[in-house]
Design a protein around this nucleic acid. Sequence first.
DNA 1: ATATGTGAGT
Length: 601
Amino acid sequence: MQRFLFKRIQKPLQNLALCANYITTTIPTHNNTNATTIPHVETSDSWASIIFDLAQCGTRTGHALFEASHMLISGTKPNGYLFVQMVRASANLGWDFFSLQLHSYILRSGFCSNVFVSTALINFYIGIGSLSDAHQVFVEIPQPSVVSWNSLISGYVHSGQFCKALSLFLQLERSEVSVDSYSLTAALGACGQLSFLLLGKTVHSKTVKLGLENSTVVLNCLIDMYGKCGSLQEAILVFNNMIEKDTISWNSVIAASARNGSLQQAFSFLQQMHNPDIISYNELINGFSRFGDVEDAIKLLFSMPNPNSSSWNSIITGYVNRSRAREALDFFCKMHLENVEMDQFTFSSILSGVAGISALTWGMLIHCCTIKFGLATSIVVGSSLIDMYSKCGKISDAETIFHLLPEKNLVTWNSMISGFSWNGNPSKMMLLFEQMKMERDVKPDEITFLNVISACLHNQIPFENALQYFESMIKEYGIEPTLEHCCSMIRLMGQRGEVWRAENMIFQLGFGTCGSVWRALLGACGKCRDLKVAKNAAAKVIQLEGEDEFVYVTMSNLYAHYAKWEDVRVARKLMKEKGMRKEAGYSWIERENVISNSELQ
DNA sequence: ATATGTGAGT
């Protein structure tokens, strides 16, 4: 139990850390109070004012924590409520080291069996992103309450581990503890993120069973869930049946419409709304720049009352997603000129645009901006910087940033791994992958494995090694292979002349009816010149996706290779008859990016 | 002790 406490070394808070250290090293536990301890001079009443200050979370909170520590040192008997307030206050202040010491003090004094205290600790660990510690605390509570469950479930949702959250939710349903509206909102959030419509509907029926059909918060979550699962009609239905709608209800239904491409619908909701806030407008701006015209989005941005950085970010993201990175950069400059505040999302969006066009000079300039804004070490910006540098071929700069980042998440690791993969450094890639597996709060996901497998593809790593990765993904990590994994494996087989294995795998993984895998197989056959498998693959592509010039070109090249000139002639004739033409190949080389003085002003 | 609404990486 103690093991996991001291792993994380936080910013040192000198006097408090010392004080906290003093607590844990010198104070006897309460069940074996010895004679050297100062007797209880104070009664539990004396906690009252301290607890009051702790709970206020104001300027006196830190001081109150300090006093509470001293009282504990002097032997005043604590109670559970005091610890709850201490943990909460210390977590709010970001005094991580102090909180850790507090945890160990709580363990020593036997208060960890108190549900309230332990739940407060769970929330502390969630706050610092240490989900495994939170889970550990949870597991050791003799009888966790709904709140303990809910805290952990929503903790997993907030950290993006939606499946984990849902499996906990299902576990909660099977336990003696009964679910409440908090559990349902967390579960709905996870369903939405995963587009689990069916499970979402099940949760919907639970809300009715529990008589929560009038809870605004729960209904808001339902709107959001349906919207994210692509069921706009259901979302609107829930919205229309609501008796009490608040701003979030309106924004959720606007978001549901906008994100599903129903821009008209979204716009009409916005017009019906009495007091639209920034988010209401931003959802629509986002919708316009994603599905409509970026120009419309810009119009709305300039006509809305108080646009913020998110409003501007949506435009940049819109340009970037439509491969209009130059315009994104123009807009970024405009944002700078108009003194709009920039946040981590501004930088991550623009950096992703810069990465897409390998505009290194711009990337470096923006990197400087992030440093100036104090955002260079944020996880989001840091991950984008890694991606940008590695896509610009500056892998060692990417590496430096990776190592300098104080905190890393799944995305950070994935960016670095894909960087090594694209820059032809498989040994570093594999080393990093092994390091990642050792991390406590990060686990490889399907994207990690896709990067690893494609690294094998690009770096001539033996097929057997790639197969090992692929199998460990399925068996050890329980990750379902996606279409892309399947295609990567097929391409690998093509490289090693092992396409004969492919067909079996395709059917085993259930991708037999996907044209794109057969297309990948055909391409692989072209590489390793396997005419027999190619014929079959070509037939499948045509059967599933219709006529296709790629098929004819590949086949005629293959026939040519085996000097089957008659077949070549037939294939070319067929192509001609169908009016197909091989598209001319082209490559583009980004010219040196020079930023002119006018752009810099 | 706990909850809902946009943004990043293949």
